[in-house]
Design a protein around this nucleic acid. Structure first.
Lengths: 388, 388
DNA sequence: CTGAAAGCGCTTACAG
DNA sequence: CTGAAAGCGCTTACAG
């Protein structure tokens, strides 16, 4: 711990601490020669100002805390990286505040770091609060009280509290709608959705994607069929390949009749799509030969898997820029109106969707039929829960 | 900013600040009734101690900084999550210090946060210093001077400085050796390696994996052939599917003759393997039908891609535990001997390796030949750089 | 251009 | 069990 303090450095240089402070902070009112001498000495002795002391004194910090709850998804990390540079351009430091899933009391954990940290601003990335509605609402109220500038990035505030916050997100609903419409334009009619939240409430982005899927169906006057909605099996880690795989696999086994005739699926995200593709594969169904599949996010895995996945690319750049802009504006003029920005993603057509026409339809039914048999042969253990 | 300070809370409760402090910190020497009153008031007014002031006063913090340089790879994030809980069990908070790739001067950026942050300890996750050897060595020397407890996790210290540091990592060399030996046991003889660093020096883990590959070849008395080593094309982001794809694709085009006869590849990591699989696919080669392929890491994508990738699973749990243990030991007794731990990973056999025998060999040569033709038909633009 | 002084919000001996 | 005081390492008016 040979850390040197400002006092010692001052003694070494034979000046007052206030002079050292000014020199280190590039103030204009310091003799250039003195400054040079001090900076050199600092360098030589490895002096770096104690950031706690500095921030305590300064009062207003220029660091932004970005909260990430639970798992570090790839999409979140990519947004974070861009966000960090955007905020950097505007003169802010960024720090990740991770609230682990294990934490009993999310709300108070968040509150503790926000209140204790004296940040210039806060962004919630990808999740907010806990499944416990009341706790989340509580958190919102308290955050409103301490009045930190904050924006939700890729999360909507579903806490139900009146306080309005700014947010920015990919337009989940329109994205899913575009994806589904694309499938419909390719001749698909019986289209499933993989990865719905168990409770189907508005807890997060997926509910929005599910609604976009429903809207596209309605637009095309296709009757929606709840039995085609595949629920998430692994709720603690929804954005995973494993969730896509397990969820679809279970559904295929349980509802062989529903599976019959489905020609396409929209997955709640790319990772889920990859997992789902494997479940399909194991059931003897090929993509896109037997069933088409689209993802959501635009991860690299969607680009390099085979078949390449048609998906909706999140506009990471724009999301990060907008979030940074909104937050900085809020910091500068706290009482401005809130802005809520949905940014449309871009549909990327690749190889996982096939154009359907009647004769193909026939082939399809046949192969789905065979998958139904596979399902049946294993369905003994799940007989009572089979819905069809 | 209705943040309340200890002084105001003290006034509200009609006690001295020292009493509030004691109550908030659960000291034993406080009247239970007084404590209850204070805690309740703190709750009501949303009082949370200013963490800067607290840490400034305390001097020794109990937070650990984990440094991550450049991209947030999935493997790194998984290790981080485990590390956070392991450190948490031992009473430490964890914070991520991200050094972005853009930063001109890595070394001094690292030094600044370490010196300025007064952390209880530091771990470097996945990368250390910059490509600039001298700068890295410089950093090591300065870090040694300030004498922070630190351990390298999944990074080796190649700075060349005498100061010995503890480290823990998957055993890259033996892992790659196991993987390669596995291929050899399955009858493969001409085996390539995808993702070598351009300079082939010992900058990071990949050099170790490359050497493990070489060792296995030597064990089996197979003559190694440098033309089978595929170099990374995208050096700034080596752990990516894109790097695997572009690197192998270029190689396939450039060295069609080398490609002839290769029956298997070991990829430097799973992401690279996935990208490589696509390049193979585009060249008309199937995995494992025409060429076998193994990865390294044990990411989910290796499990859900088709074919499922045979790979070496990193023992994340053990790595995180050992790192936490070592760091805490170093914190408690700074002068203890350093420990350098290589933890063996587990080979997971899946579907990307095929057992080879003579007649298969014949088929293979034929299809690689056809890929050579594809390459040639596009080689006009790269004619001068073609090595064969 | 430089120095002495006050104070940011806490914690921790030291008295009582 | 409680309070008054000192001080952690800085920065920033305020004088000179």
């Amino acid at each position: 711990m040979s850390e040197i303090t400002i006092k010692e450095l001052a003694r070494i240089c034979g000046v007052a601490v206030s002079t050292v402070s000014r020199a280190m902070n590039d103030r204009s009112d310091v003799n250039p020669a003195t400054r040079a001498r001090i900076v050199a000495a600092a360098q030589a002795h490895g002096y770096v100002p104690n950031s706690m002391a500095r921030r305590l004194k300064i009062g207003s910090s220029d660091t932004i805390a970005v909260f990430i709850q639970g798992e570090f998804g790839q999409m979140l990390m990519e947004i974070f990286e861009r966000l960090e540079v955007e905020l950097g351009k505007r003169g802010f430091d960024t720090t990740i505040a991770h609230i682990s899933e294990q934490q009993h009391d999310h709300a108070s954990a968040v509150e503790r770091v926000v209140r204790g940290g004296r940040f210039a601003g806060v962004v919630f990335l990808g999740r907010y609060g806990s499944a416990d509605r009341e706790a989340s609402a509580q958190l919102s109220r308290r955050l409103a009280e301490i009045d930190v500038p904050m924006v939700f990035c890729t999360t909507s505030d579903y806490s139900g509290v009146e306080v309005q916050r700014s947010w920015v997100s990919v337009d989940d609903a329109s994205g899913a709608r575009d994806l589904t419409a694309h499938l419909i334009a390719r001749g698909h009619r019986r289209i499933g959705f993989i990865g719905a939240g168990r409770e189907r409430d508005h807890e997060h982005a997926w509910a929005l994607r599910l609604s976009g899927y429903g809207a596209a169906l309605r637009d095309a006057e296709i009757e929606s069929d709840d039995s085609l909605i595949v629920e998430s099996v692994i709720e603690s880690q929804v954005y995973t390949m494993r969730n896509g795989y397990e969820s679809l696999r279970r559904w295929l086994r349980r509802d062989p009749d529903s599976a019959r005739g489905v020609t396409a699926f929209v997955a709640a995200c790319d990772a889920v799509a990859i997992g789902a593709a494997r479940a399909l594969d194991e059931a003897g169904l090929s993509v896109p030969g037997d069933v088409s599949l689209v993802g959501f996010d635009g991860l690299d895995v969607a680009e390099y898997s085979r078949p390449r996945l048609t998906t909706l690319e999140q506009p990471i750049e724009a999301i990060a820029q907008t979030t940074a802009r909104l937050l900085v504006e809020t910091i500068r003029s706290p009482r401005r109106h809130v802005e809520q920005v949905w940014i449309r993603g871009r549909l990327i057509e690749r190889e996982s969707v096939r154009t359907i026409d009647d004769d193909v339809q026939a082939t399809l039914s046949a192969s789905v039929g065979s998958s139904g048999e596979i399902a049946r042969s294993k369905s003994g253990d799940a007989a009572n829960t089979t819905s069809a």
